[in-house]
Nucleic acid binder design. Sequence first.
DNA 1: TAGGAATTGTGTCTGACGGACACAGTTCAG
DNA 2: CTGAACTGTGTCCGTCAGACACAATTCCTA
Lengths: 238, 238
Amino acid sequence: MVTQPRTAELLWGSPDRPKRGPKPALSLEQIVATAVSMADAEGLATVSMQRLAEDLGFTKMSLYRYTPGKAELTALMLDAALGPAPDLSDLDGGWRAALHEWALRMWAGLRQHPWVVDVAVGPRVMGPNELDWLETGLGTLSDTGLTGGERLDSVVLITGHVRSLAQQATAPGAETDTPEKALHAIMSGILTDHADRYPEAAAAFASAGSSSGQDDALEFGLARIFDGLAALVAERAE
Amino acid sequence: MVTQPRTAELLWGSPDRPKRGPKPALSLEQIVATAVSMADAEGLATVSMQRLAEDLGFTKMSLYRYTPGKAELTALMLDAALGPAPDLSDLDGGWRAALHEWALRMWAGLRQHPWVVDVAVGPRVMGPNELDWLETGLGTLSDTGLTGGERLDSVVLITGHVRSLAQQATAPGAETDTPEKALHAIMSGILTDHADRYPEAAAAFASAGSSSGQDDALEFGLARIFDGLAALVAERAE
DNA sequence: TAGGAATTGTGTCTGACGGACACAGTTCAG
DNA sequence: CTGAACTGTGTCCGTCAGACACAATTCCTA
């Protein structure tokens, strides 16, 4: 990643305009915002520099006056789409209620910008908004007596769960149904053909396909994680 | 996805050779195996039909005699890389030990084939091996009294955790260090610059960066999830 | 006030990608 | 033995990110 310093400067640097030369007709914010709404509407894959430039009424190469490359633009899109973290200070119910709300807000955001999950991958330069989310998540655990590493691992655990489900729920083919039903629809033929070899899977799908509401998998996972965390917090409190 | 029936047939169908015409010089298995090792060695992105064909000593277009398109080939690569699920029947320690081993095996597999995480996304046609993993995971919970939906959600929860961490750990830039240290290295400058705005994050990274061994985040998350599951199982057992 | 000098938008070009299509050569069934 | 089916190849297309040179615009300085 040679682009890291540039990415960091674009995300964190101050936008000091040069003095000579014609005034830019576009702004990086404008480009990023257009790219985000395009990705929201038609998927990240359809956002090419060409299409983005056409949407803005300029040529493709003009965009490279604002961003060194598409990777940097994508990093900016990510932080813009995340937006600032929610304010959880008014919440009652301790860390559990706060973390729950935090997770649900993140879930809602990821549903709105499904492509974010594909972009926010691996150790990378976090933008102000992403770091704000992390900060807020960690803050919910400040009264628990957990160590810094444990708090970090907790937030990572919840993030992973939310992201993993968001990825399933917003993937192509799952727009109409819940991901469980979509998967069940796809696999039902195969499962009935091989029910003898995969009895547990066949039974589980049959049972889950009939009941199971909308966000069951999300709430189920959160409940288990919070129960597990509560046990650790209680242990630390002794 | 118009390619779904074809994918299903390639994954589950029987390979009946046509009788007329020259014998194929390649086999789909051979192509898939080559593609898998190429993806392992140099990343999924570098596996183009062109490079793959060159590696096999044929032209690009010849590969399309074996697979209708790259998407189907990728689906086959996924199932081939997963391999059969581990046999957990010899394990003592109940569902917890079995699920733990299951998760660690999956972790090992994902470390070996990092690109699998990027491919195994969304409701899709599962291959025999992928379904075998699911079957085995569900099987560990058969004595717990959980419903089919709960078992499914549990396996999804653990899978999400393992996958999420594998994605962090094997992303470009994290090969040398643990993902936490890599992220810390990237973000340390920014964090010290903005420590007043992100105190929790700065503190957590500082604390985690000094201690924290190799797979702490993995084991931490698994422990919390298992504790939470144990509480539910105990509740059901009443 | 008249220059450079810096900066912006454009047009052209390259190499890589997935894949459509026509064609020649090979193999078997009738 | 002939026609049908099948395999591998070569050529072509549209799209992608991006390099580079160039003309036009704007400001700082002499």
